[in-house]
Design a protein around this nucleic acid. Structure first.
Lengths: 345, 345
DNA sequence: CTGAAAGCGCTTACAG
DNA sequence: CTGAAAGCGCTTACAG
């Protein structure tokens, strides 16, 4: 994997900083106060733009602060103010990080930063108990959870206790705030598409994570197929997107198979390729409508990462506002509707 | 854009917490100490796993802490310990966030979290002066900058002053630590590819950001074309990936055009499609080798987000280690070599 | 094994 | 307009 990577390490030795002890990077308002010949209170007032300071004093303090490369200690500030200077939202990511999630993060981030929020990313790999703890310890403003797994009851309780709002994104739970696309509806659309193309023997292909979304899609599709009748539906869960091409090839040996529903466009690309090579007449539909699908001529179920991400950000901002205004906590629940994109595949 | 999104808001009113003032979420070690009938020092010792505590005391304190939903105040801890309990690396992202960067972030994150680091994401949209300030205020452990723009001299100075290591990713600067793929070499490979296919009139298509990478690619390609001689090369910068299909279509009206070098695979997809519709015999090469390119049969220059991201994370970890061990600051510079993938496009 | 006390760097009434 | 002082929540010698 790395054989073609030629690496060149290039070492320079840098001069040490000159031996002045105030140069160690720990300048405090005390240092500034001493140098300016004023009290630390005055320094603090200047630094916080308090109006009650003589102009000459202000300028002198500011000059010295800059000269000393002073940067306030966020921890000390936070300790006394009980809140961050910049609000930070924690983003909990699951292990499996698909393409769609990254689009999502991009838009969540874009919207949040417009509202002066920062984002901090955490993995839920090893269970998120400790992550939630860390979030509270750092007094983050809010929490967004992407996809599965949901928060445990204990985690929810401790977040509630500390009045930190949390929002599920791409997951639904009747008792929590969430925003999600309707996966059941999306897979019903996929079923209708294949049914309209007279498919009688259909394979659904997803990944091996037993996510809520995956389950919803299997269900929605199967239900619609059963309502219609006379259709044979199978399910297949594979381990990675990479192997989808090979697996599709062997599936296509079954000459009676006439429809495939891939749970993501990325999976479907391998299928499109395999179908072309076999010259088989099989209908294919994907899910997501990511950028290349247009050029792959892939029919698919579109869900917009931009809308989901932006909305999610707006919802969390609203939740934060509610808390700050001391309003009672309300559940916010949003269900977005996917859309079918017919490219005759 | 949002017309098809049906939104359903669902309001529940939740019970307020019972009116007990210790339930407000601000439990401190003082509360625990009082309830346990010990001093706060003892509580602190228990919470920090100090060995010098009687077992019975320890258990009692732990029990009460849990009962009270106690979570330590990170700011207070940090103030006295002068460092975070969990190291956090700041990631500076530019405005234009392409697909490749998200792959990159994914792998940086994966590697960093394995080493118990958190990631905090910042945008450099509005110039990063204030961002750097914020990073220092929060005493982050290190900084990664993705792509352009680089840090200003002032920003570098203040980071150095506060001894916060920083690393450029996908950018090179002789006086700083960085890791990047060799874009000049990559575009020379692209040139060689088109030249080997007898192209005489070639168009290079990139985006309108004047990034270092973009400039390197124009340069490398042009240089090799000039060395070869008898080749006509033009450059075109477009505003978005979406419009690349239309633009390619009109470019292909020029019947003498026989080669196109797209600066990203995403751009090239539109070109492949346009070429097919025109039935023109034009050689196309992309850049990145993202997943779908294999199925688009697109020749391209491969650079691995996994290697770049993982290496970047390892480098930053090494830089942090060096600082913690009090070693002299060294520059770490890594150049990775891209690879041509010939799919006969 | 444990309590009392100092101190981390800052903000903010309070009293001039 | 400004200084001295209290206090945010925690850790850690210090003295028992």
């Amino acid at each position: 994997m790395e054989t073609f990577a030629f690496v060149c390490y290039n070492f320079h030795l840098l001069m040490d900083f000159k031996a002045d002890d105030r140069v160690s990077g720990k300048v405090t308002i005390k240092d500034i106060a001493a140098k300016a010949g004023v009290g630390i209170g005055t320094v603090s007032r200047v630094l916080n733009n308090s109006p009650n300071v003589k102009d000459s004093t202000r300028e002198e303090v500011l000059r010295i602060a800059k000269e000393l490369n002073y940067v306030p200690n966020g921890a000390a500030r936070m300790l006394v103010r009980q809140s961050h200077s910049t609000a930070t939202v924690g983003l909990l990511l699951p292990v499996v990080e698909n393409q769609f999630f990254f689009e999502l993060i991009k838009h969540i981030h874009a919207c949040l930063k417009n509202h002066q929020f920062n984002i901090m990313i955490f993995s839920t790999d090893h269970g998120h108990e400790s992550v939630v703890h860390h979030i509270i310890e750092q007094r983050l403003t809010a929490v967004l959870t992407l996809g599965d797994p949901p928060l445990t009851a204990a985690e929810q309780e401790i977040l509630n206790f500390h009045k930190i709002p949390f929002l599920y994104v791409d997951y639904h739970d009747a008792d929590s705030s969430y925003i999600t696309y309707d996966s059941v509806k999306g897979s019903v659309m996929a079923a209708d598409y294949l049914i309209s193309r007279q498919c009688k023997k259909i394979m659904m292909i997803g990944l091996t994570d037993r996510s809520q979304q995956q389950i919803d899609r299997f269900q929605g599709f199967r239900r619609r197929a059963e309502e219609t009748g006379g259709i044979h539906v199978s399910e297949l869960c594979i381990n990675s997107e990479e192997e989808c091409y090979d697996i599709s090839l062997s599936l296509l040996n079954d000459q009676s198979l006439d429809g495939i529903f891939y749970f993501s466009d990325t999976l479907a690309y391998g299928g499109i390729q395999a179908r072309m090579e076999c010259g088989r007449d099989v209908s294919i539909i994907g899910y997501d409508d990511i950028f290349p699908s247009k050029f792959m001529k892939l029919s698919t179920i579109r869900q917009s990462a931009e809308i989901l991400g932006t909305r999610a950000a707006e919802m969390v901002i609203e939740m934060v506002r509610q808390r700050e205004d001391g309003e009672e906590k309300q559940l916010l629940q949003t269900v977005l509707q996917p859309e079918i994109i017919d490219r005759n595949s």
